[in-house]
Design a protein around this nucleic acid. Sequence first.
RNA 1: GUGGGUGUAGCUCAGUUGGUUAGAGCGUCUGACUGUGGCUCAGAAGGUCGCGGGUUCGAAACCCGUCACUCACCCCA
Length: 422
Amino acid sequence: MASQWEPLLGTADIAEPEVREWVFVENQARALFSRYGYGELRTPVIERTDVFVRGLGDETDVVKKEMYTFEDRGGRSVTLRPEGTAGVMRAIANQGLAEGEERRVFYMGPMFRGERPAAGRRRQFHQVGVEAVGRAAPLLDAECIAMLLHFLEEVGIADGELLVNSRGTADDRPAAAAALKEHFTPHLAGLCEDCRRRFETNVWRMLDCKVEGCQEAIRGAPAIMDLLGAESKAYFAAVCACLDGLKVPYRVDPRLVRGLDYYEHTVFEVVHSGLGAQNALAGGGRYALFLPGSDRPVRGVGFAAGLERLLLARASLGQAAAGTPGMDVFLVSLGERALAASQLLAAELRHAGLRVLAETTGRSMKAQMRAADRVRARYTLIRGDNELDGGTVLCKAMADGVQTPVAAGEVAAWLLARLMSG
RNA sequence: GUGGGUGUAGCUCAGUUGGUUAGAGCGUCUGACUGUGGCUCAGAAGGUCGCGGGUUCGAAACCCGUCACUCACCCCA
């Protein structure tokens, strides 16, 4: 339906009953991450632009062509966050982190990227992510990965495939990049336009190209692992050993290259078959991130999972959305007096903890009964002049149609006794 | 940014080679002896056929443009 009230391209309204799926996944995330010692951190969705430019790398696709960047009223360049890590690091740096101190945080919320939307990809999308900042150890990387899989399990996705690889350190990269360039140079003429561009801007990415004609050159390329220094190789081997120790199944994908510059050492991704073309469910890795005005990187390990994609995966597995729960009680009122009196009774019942809907417009009894049925009320309380004069309320159990007159003062207790017992 | 698909009622969609007052299902509302839901039956409301132009005696349908949505590429979550 194309109406002028459609939300902006790539954004969406999330309403009942779908929103229950969101809340479910968010709650699972909160509960699970806290079991691993992570606390929630909420950072602004908007930051100074250089937080991201410096953090993600100015040659990355995200920074070059996908950010929602504009000037605020003071002429400062600001950006809607395209990912969560940079802002989280900024916040942690702002709070101060002692040498050797470890900080574990998780976050969830909207991110913004100005791309063409497709299945599982929106301009405003949502991520839940974690960051363990301040220490570097293979065991920590492995635990982080294991937690991601644990989380996926908790939300009903047990069949994702884990891919891992290493990007080495900043020290390894110049030599490795040179080796890659050397390999690709003779093939350049036969490669796609994008690859020729990547040759200049980001050789690593060429390994990731899906164009048919480029595959042969890519297959012949040296594996990243072979280009890394001894220290990096050892680190990666240790991470793999830890994963083995944790009995986490994984596949080493020598071509896994993630899109942001801040990664070093371990990178990983979980892919899922139920997502269409955008098959990455979650991704992350170890990173060294630079903040504006600082030459010392903040190091950590973390991941982000796409909420929309988690929900797609759940849907593909037939994980049913929890239905909207019905009301406990619907108050049917016949006549002005009853209408007024029922508002008071409704308030009393709600204070008692019940889910209550009361007639407000005085329709026919049939219409009100239909309304009660539509909201799946378990009890309908009927009051007209007869009941008001007698000081009672007619309580009807909708399941079997049995009607019981109850003294007005005892209705709440009467209902509670029945509703609580199930 | 580049390609493909689709825009008809609140929702999901029909609409035959252009031909009278544009339909169905679901939903909503009303009614079927006085104050009783679901099932059934009867009825009602609800549509600038995305928008603009063109062809034609006549356009929801054909042509052009435009906008929107959607899928895919790129890249990523």
